[in-house]
Amino acid sequence: MTPNAASARILLIEDEAPIRRFLKIALGSAGHETLEAGSGREGLERAVIGNPDLIILDLGLPDMDGKAVVREIRSWSSLPILVLSVRDGEAEKIAALDAGADDYVTKPFATGELLARLRVLLRKRGDSEAQPSTVQVGPLSVDLARRLVTVGDQEIKLTRKEFDILALLARHGGRLVSHRQILTEVWGPAHVDDLHYLRIAIGHIRNKLDDDPASPRFIVTEPGVGYRLLS
């Protein structure tokens, strides 16, 4: 099966029936097929049997902790998981991302926002077999193979770590990358708490790319959670 961004089978694990109902309509109108589950257990069953391309998971389930659902799915599958969380649940979000979720959307959300996130996640899945060597965001281009960064025609000189960060964000193309993920991959597991390394490096990258954080062109901050590269 070769799923594409235009039509995919999406498993929706959410205990609130009204939310399931409108999501089913919204997803259907975007050309997706929807499987529904009203509880964590049911969701896990459907995930095994239904062979979905992507899972939308509500973190507040009645029967089990959303994070536990993420962990169980991750134990046998790497299919993309988008979690729905309430606002102010920063700790929840981070825990879910650490457990293996790929991105989150804060409730209440506009369906447009949700569909945009789904597109990014589904594209990544498609891409995972053939990772492009160059990522393009507006005038910014990141050549992963040749470790070359340009904005327009201008080549940007980044240090090794700065490039690693930008490359990591680029490989995730539009997807959220958590602080922990960047710190672990770029600095190593011993430095997961050294947030200021990351902050300073991002500051340098932004300066070099001439990217104003107050109205970002390339790198977007998700306060308290992580960063994403615009796509």
């Binding site: 920063e90 200021h196 902050r199 104003d212 954080p213 107050a214 901050t221 998700e222």
Partner: peptide, 30 residues
């Protein structure tokens, strides 16, 4: 509060995108 060193511009950037609709009828200068 979970306090840490933060660039105010990052906060402004985030807020600006969250409030795009609310601020539709005004021009925002940073």
């Amino acid at each position: 509060p979970k306090r840490g060193a933060v660039d105010i511009r990052e906060i402004i950037g985030r807020v600006r995108s969250d409030l795009a609709r609310t601020l539709m009828r005004h021009s925002l200068h940073v």
